[in-house]
Structure formats: C-alpha cells, structure tokens
Design a protein around this nucleic acid. Sequence first.
DNA 1: GTCGCTTTTGCTCACAACTAGCATAAGGCT
DNA 2: AGCCTTATGCTAGTTGTGAGCAAAAGCGAC
Lengths: 298, 298
Amino acid sequence: MTGQVVTAELLAVVVAMVDGHPCVLTLGTPPRLPAGPLLPSHRSLQAATRAWVEEQTGRRLGYLEQLYTFADLDRESVGRRISISYLGLTTSGESGIGGWAGWYDLFAWEDHRGHAAPTDPLIGRLRAWANSDADCRDERAQRVAIDFGLDGRAWQPELTLQRYELLYEAGLVAEAPDEWRRPDAELAPGGRMLGDHRRALATGIARLRAKIGYRPVVFELMPPTFTLRQLQDCVEALSGHAVHTQNFRRLVEQQALVEETGSLLETGGRPARLYRFRRQVLAERHVAGTKLPTVRAH
Amino acid sequence: MTGQVVTAELLAVVVAMVDGHPCVLTLGTPPRLPAGPLLPSHRSLQAATRAWVEEQTGRRLGYLEQLYTFADLDRESVGRRISISYLGLTTSGESGIGGWAGWYDLFAWEDHRGHAAPTDPLIGRLRAWANSDADCRDERAQRVAIDFGLDGRAWQPELTLQRYELLYEAGLVAEAPDEWRRPDAELAPGGRMLGDHRRALATGIARLRAKIGYRPVVFELMPPTFTLRQLQDCVEALSGHAVHTQNFRRLVEQQALVEETGSLLETGGRPARLYRFRRQVLAERHVAGTKLPTVRAH
DNA sequence: GTCGCTTTTGCTCACAACTAGCATAAGGCT
DNA sequence: AGCCTTATGCTAGTTGTGAGCAAAAGCGAC
C-alpha cells in the first residue's frame, strides 16, 4: 500500500507593490507563476519555495505562508502532480528576472476604488447565465448577488476566489472548459495565465485581503519609511476599495503600529510625516491581532 | 527536472461531539488519525480523504476542509512523504470502527471552562524554560504570556497550535526531541499520539475554534434538533471557555440561524424549546459571515 | 501678498454592537 | 408552598466604527 507515484510542485504567488499597483511576480508568456518540483536537497516545503523563487527570479522572499494544495493529473508523466501553493510578500526594490503583472490587469473586476464599478456589463452576463438553467436559477442568482455585492449587499473584497469560480462556471474566463466557454467578446476583462495559475493567484489575493484586516502584513510590502497616506493607498490598492482616511489613521495610531521618524515628505500639499513600522508588534502581536479598516470612504 | 519520488498521504482530523465532549476520531494505540495514501483511483484529494476515512472507520463525513500540508522524510521508503491534512466534521451517531478521543484528554490545558485554569503548574515550567536561555529570554517570556493569556492578557482559544508548539519547544510534551525533553513527571497533561498526529489535531482545533466565530459550522456537529443551551454547550466545549448565555442567544436569534420546531425538551428546569438549523443560511451566507460570540460568562 | 488648491491632521457626534447584569417565567422536587 | 433549576426577556453602560467638520501647512497663480 505504498500509493501512487506523484510529483510535488511548489507554486509561488509573490506579491509586491510596483508604482502603487499591487502586482504578482510572473515569468514568460503567457504569464506563469514561479514554480518548481520538490527536490531531495530541499529541507522543507517552505525552503523549496524560497529556493525556486530565488533561482528563477533572483529575488529573496520575506514573508511566506502556505495557501492551498491541489492535485491534478500530470500530462507529462504517468502519475499525478500535487501542487502546493504559497503566498509570498516582498518589496519590488531589487531587480531580477521576470516581470510584475498587475492584479487588476488580470482581474479587472476586482478593483472597486472610485470610478463606478467596472463590473456592470459582467453582471448582466452573469444574470443571464443564472437564468439559463431553470433548475438552479435561484441558487445561482443568490451566489451572484452575494459574491458581487448586489441587491443592497456589500461588496466583499475577500471573495476574490468565489468570484473567479463563478466566472469560470459561467464560462466567462478564457480558461474555462470549452463546453462552458462564451465568445471572446463577452469574457470578463483580464488577461489569462498558464494553466490554473490565475486561480492560484485569486486564492492568494483573497487570503491577503482577508489577512491585512487582522495581521500586520501590509508592512511587508512597504518601504522602510512611508507616510500614512502611502500606507492607506497600499491598503486600498490591495483590498480594492477606498477607506475613510481619518478612521484609517485613528486605527493605525491607536494600535501603535508605526512610529514617527521625525522627517517629513513633501507631497504637493501639506508635507506629511514619515513613519516606520514598529517591528516589535510582530513579537507582541504575531498572534494577537491587528485591525486595519476596510471600510469605504466619502 | 522531474523532481523527487514522493508519496502523498491524506490525514484526517475528524471531529464530533460525544456526550458533550469534543472528540477526534482515532484508531489503535497509541491513537492515530485515519490516514492513507493517495491512489490513482481517487478523483481528488478531498475524495481520497473521504474514501480513507470511510474505509478505515466506516463513517461518512459531512463537512470537510483542507488544513495544512507538510513534508517529512519517509522512513519506510527512500523518498519523502507529503501529508495533506483535512478537518472533517460529523455527528457521532452511527457506530463504526475506531474510537473517539477527547480533545481535553489529549490537550488538558486547552479547556478553560469554569474550574480555575488547569494550566497553573504548566506556566511555572514554561517560565523556567523561558528563563533558561539568557539570549532569548524576553522573546520567550512574551510568547508564553501571549499564548497563555498572562499578565492581564486575554486567553485566546484559537492559539491552540501556538501553545502546542511552545510546549514542544520547551520539551514539555512526550513527542518532543530527546534533547529538549524534560523528565516525565513534568510533562504537560495530555496523552500522546502517533508521530506528529497531535500537532495535526492542534491545527484542526485551532482552525475549528476560529471558524465557529464567523461561519455556521457548529451545526455540523449538532443533532437535527437541539435546544439553545445544547448549542451553547457545544460552542463552549469547542472553544474551551464559557460564553455569556443571554448574549449568545441574542446573536443566534438575531441572525436567524435557527428556527423553532414547536416542541419542547424537558431538561430538569424550565423546559427548553427545540430548534433546528436553518439550512438556508448555508446558501445565504456560505460566504457572508456569521457570528457566534466567544466571550466569557459570569 | 493674497487667494485658491491640495494634502495632512485633529476633533466630535451619532449610531451600532457588545458586555454584563437584573428580573421574570416555567418547570420539578421536597 | 417554598426552593431549586433552567430558560428567556430586558436594559444600562461601554466600546467600536462610520462619517463629517474644520484647521493646519505647504504650493502656485494672479
């Protein structure tokens, strides 16, 4: 009872902010995530992921956490392939191989900052899809309404994966199976990726959006010093919607997440104070919880 | 670049309430979790887990979610073994093979209901461990204080895994490496399990405790009809500490999680109304969030 | 130099949620 | 009838959060 021969692959969703845009580290065209097999030399799954990312892109990872494991049939060999995906955070600073693909170039419907929801045409197609099957119409309509914040419901940023899966089932993304696929013109706006890498990315986005609400992980994406406005912009970019500025500041300061550096940064208006992350809170609260509001503004 | 030969194993943490005690499904002595290799016949990781649990214990699983994946060296073969752990919920009703091991027989320090904290002697040993290394004394002391809710901090039920790992590092659990181990007399109270199964269980407990706070999963563990007191007892047993009765009821009713059946149950005092779970909320809120308070009482 | 624009920052109010306690209802038992 | 137990209703006090007003502090245009 030794089981099937399988190969294990590590898949890395590496996120950084590039010019204010949340991006994922990709290689080649169509874009694919850094990935590589588990080798005997690797000490652990996490170490293997770090090694592959470094080898393929020349970048060191800071924060790294496991996302999800899935198995699919391996086309190249007889066996099966197990993919273990990780979420990594880094700063875009050091140059390396590979490029940064913007989240919202891949998932245009996930950006709900300002400018009225770009999802309007999508919603129509989703509703049509829901109505196309009399048996599960109600259930589908409800999923659409919840996932996309319809009928007075709130838009929930961390439902990225559910929205992607809904679009997949509705045949509105390019990688959907042929029998479900809609004509290109109708597809949801967003570039595709190799294999199911876009799904892995959706999982990573969802996890990160959820996590910034209760763990101080945003700071992994920030430069050493920053203004509160820059921090807020980062949170808004990640969560995909605006937050109330004054409340944001209150929460950050209340929890003593940052400390002043003493210097100022000229920003076009009143100069802003520069802050740095209080590294100590990682020890204090690695575990204890941290709140950043993900509440809308104006 | 085909990678190392690995075997993939599924590991199931199956939880049910037995006579009011939260329990995990185990086999043999020392107790071990149901587990089995991934086979070609399995359609997915989740299906494989269901199949193994059913084959080994004769029980069907309802709710099932992935927990964590880890890799270790496989002693039996040349390669490596990847373990993918799942958390399953069921009702203890149907009989089958294997037994139910009480959470708090395995992790006595995790039960904080009533009776003053049973952790007192443990704390002393942890503090001694923290002080034993001058270099990292502060960091260790802080971890102990946070994980065990010392110095005015609140006890956080969902830190089960962190507490286990702290005890492991301190050599206070039987399965710790020999060089860390303390004399038997000083071990933390709680039976051991095969290999690292106790760690997997700790992961499952932590996940479940966190999840009952924002998803209606408790009901997977309840019989078809129940009183609010029984529901509360279940939540208290899982989270390991008491909750304020009136607030609990308010939250449950406010969110319309349950509906009355019309009948009553005699309980020794004033008869209690019987309720059933409103299955519809799974569709409504599979995603939308549900709150059960995990706040202390009296 | 003053006015208007921008961005930062401080403060306050209203409301919702939650903690915690009091009080009452409704049964059994002695 | 009186006491115990459990169930259930209600409310006061506190805290947390959403949202707005306003002042401070720089820049550039006129």
